[in-house]
């Protein structure tokens, strides 16, 4: 037996994403953001997207390539403070923004990836984030229902990968990538280093390749992956 080869050119993997898709995007700031896949998504002019991402990157990079050009209809996120353009788009009603507590966003994604329809929590019950959410009683406690999140597509940035799609990450470039890599119908991962099958030791694998549909080796590590000089 041998494991299948899922390596694929970025252009080909992204071409299958339809307009109107819900797209999860890994990353917290620069680390873990799949800039190359996002650039390809913008290049192919995909529209009416719903994005699920921790933050909105910074003006002019990452998901802002999609937001600034009017390709995003809705954004589910936790904090967009480093992107003045995204804040303006929100305030002017050009995009709809749903804010979520950061760990609850992670947990909603994790639930989606684990095949669970929802989760219960008391996080944010005393805040305006609880508006409109269903409350249930469990063991005498009032808890809020947070629905699971799944996406049509997840865009993942990995450090190392093999052709089957086994993934390993670097440092704080993990963040939302591992849970998102489990929570979409089609999972597309870009990897900085492509190793042969067996090159990534089973003990090193953080996202099993079973969850990954397309593995796109990166041609180069462009400037936007680098250290930001503020």
């Amino acid at each position: 037996m041998r494991l299948s080869d899922k390596t694929c050119a970025m252009a080909e993997a992204v071409a299958a994403i339809p307009d109107g898709a819900t797209v999860m995007v890994g990353g917290f700031g620069v680390p873990g953001t799949p800039f190359a896949l996002l650039a390809e998504l913008a290049r192919q002019d995909k529209r009416e997207l719903t994005l699920i991402k921790n933050d909105a990157n910074e003006t002019g990079t990452g998901v802002d390539l999609l937001i600034a050009s009017g390709r995003v209809r809705r954004l589910i996120t936790t904090h967009i403070g480093l992107n003045a353009n995204a804040i303006a788009a929100m305030n002017e009603g050009r995009i709809e923004v749903e804010f979520c507590a950061q760990g609850i966003l992670a947990e909603r994604v994790r639930a989606g990836g684990a095949g669970l329809p929802a989760l219960l929590t008391d996080i944010g019950m005393q805040t305006e984030l609880s508006a409109g959410k269903q409350i249930v009683q469990v063991d005498g406690r009032c808890l809020m229902v947070e629905t699971a999140l799944r996406a049509d597509v997840a865009l993942i940035h990995a450090d190392r990968a093999d052709p089957f799609g086994n993934l390993a990450y670097r440092a704080t470039a993990r963040n939302f990538n591992p849970p998102m890599a489990m929570a979409a119908t089609t999972v597309i991962a870009e990897a900085e280093v492509l190793l042969p099958l067996g090159g990534l030791a089973p003990d090193e694998v953080e996202t099993p390749g079973v969850f990954v549909d397309h593995l796109c080796p990166m041609a180069e590590i462009t400037e936007e992956y680098g250290v930001v000089r503020r």
């Binding site: 996120t77 936790t78 904090h79 967009i80 403070g81 804040i87 929100m90 305030n91 923004v97 804010f99 507590a101 950061q102 760990g103 609850i104 008391d122 996080i123 944010g124 005393q126 805040t127 984030l129």
Partner: peptide, 14 residues
């Protein structure tokens, strides 16, 4: 000023 709460809600609550 409405950039979103990030992780502050969970930190403050838990």
């Amino acid at each position: 000023f409405s950039p979103g709460a990030g992780g502050a809600i969970e930190l403050a609550q838990k």
